[in-house]
Design a binder for these strands. Structure first.
Lengths: 212, 212
DNA sequence: CCAGAATCCTACGCCGATGTAGGAAAAAGA
DNA sequence: TCTTTTTCCTACATCGGCGTAGGATTCTGG
């Protein structure tokens, strides 16, 4: 049984790829492990086993465990950022704020639903102290990006007063709402399509922000 | 230097308390460690050092590391539940939905600000697999509690249609909004009092839910 | 004041994960 | 085909955290 069932049984010798071609595979395996058992479970051994390879092969790709996880976080963060940019672009066509919220959430949820694993990483929360700094930095980047979009938009649409003071709080609220949308999308909600969910939540969150 | 500066220097022999009186101290120390360095850093050794005691003393209070953390989570969850109950009670006096949201958030944020450590635990996210189950169970309990309050309230106030389908999504949104409020309260917002923040966010979230 | 009980501390063995060295197998080149 | 190079695997040493045994110290009751 060379394929499928990965019991702890004897493994076939892995293909002769070399570090450069092996590296993306390692990150894929690391992502699998992180999604299934949390970032804390991403050990060199676990990743190697997931990939069907021994640990030294992983060490040939990354100097140590921390660099491996940082590489994973880098890659996934870029993927996420791309999706966010696409979602933001999709809102540009409309001058109606409510419609902007709705289409933004719709395209974002649709794209996010296509690579659930990457997004679950974001919801997982930080693991051991070694990664914490890098993880928080990623979150901070998103916060900044969100602020850079929400601030001008609210100024332009509604001339919200005292925006300087309110903005940090609103950004936090916005990001948390996005998390809620994501959870609803990835977990239970089989009876919601991305379009339905995006419209429902986009409208609700728009109401919260409009008269802030 | 028997007090203060906890370098790694020689320690004084700890007082003769015994497991029963020592146990709450151990949980206090564990909470400190969790807040400072994350739940993943709550090892028996770290807790013992934080408390100024050797590891066997901790083992005299709890059978193993998992039971210690579970005891911590139990205690903190009860504290949290008490606060939530108080906040919910405070909304009962008013029949105006918006006012209910506002006073609810206000009392909750005020009480939460008094024991920040306990609440930061909630934001920290799950650590290793051993605790994950217990941690998720706590979150599920809050979800259920929120659903039990939001559902009837929305039915009574606004006769929201198709509530069965919407409720799970709305509960998720509500909890995430609470997290946002908490983050704003505990982190940056020095220029927001609990009353101001509760009014601002309570109103915003009320708008999101009213016409859902 | 002294025996006995309760409590704390030192010291140990164990296990899982890390990171490394050197030999075996596969690919590449002559 | 035979040699050289690349890549993978087995085996090892190390480290940190877990959990326990037994001696040292402090409290307590007579």
């Amino acid at each position: 049984m060379p394929t499928s069932t990965r019991t702890t049984a004897e493994r076939v010798r892995a293909a002769h790829l070399g570090p450069d071609r092996r590296r993306p595979q390692v990150l894929d395996a690391a992502l699998q492990v992180a999604v299934k058992r949390g970032l804390g479970a991403v050990t060199v051994g676990a990743v190697a086993e997931e990939l069907g390879v021994t640990r030294p092969v992983v060490y040939a790709c990354f100097a140590d465990r921390v660099q491996m996880i940082e590489a994973l976080l880098d890659r996934e963060q870029h993927r996420l950022a791309d999706v966010v940019v696409q979602a933001l672009r999709s809102t540009g066509v409309s001058d109606d704020p409510e419609q902007a919220f709705v289409t933004g959430f719709q395209t974002w949820l649709r794209l996010a639903g296509e690579q659930p694993g990457t997004w679950r990483l974001l919801l997982a929360g930080q693991p051991d102290p070694a990664i914490r700094e890098r993880f928080d930095a990623g979150r901070a980047a998103f916060t900044q990006q969100a602020a850079a979009w929400i601030g001008p938009a609210m100024q332009r649409w509604w001339h919200t007063e005292d925006l300087d003071r309110k903005l940090p709080v609103l950004v936090e609220l916005f990001l948390s709402s996005c998390e809620a949308a994501l959870r609803s999308m990835l977990d239970g909600a089989d009876d919601w399509t991305p379009e339905e969910l995006g419209e429902f939540l986009g409208r609700a969150i728009h109401r919260a922000f409009r008269d802030a």
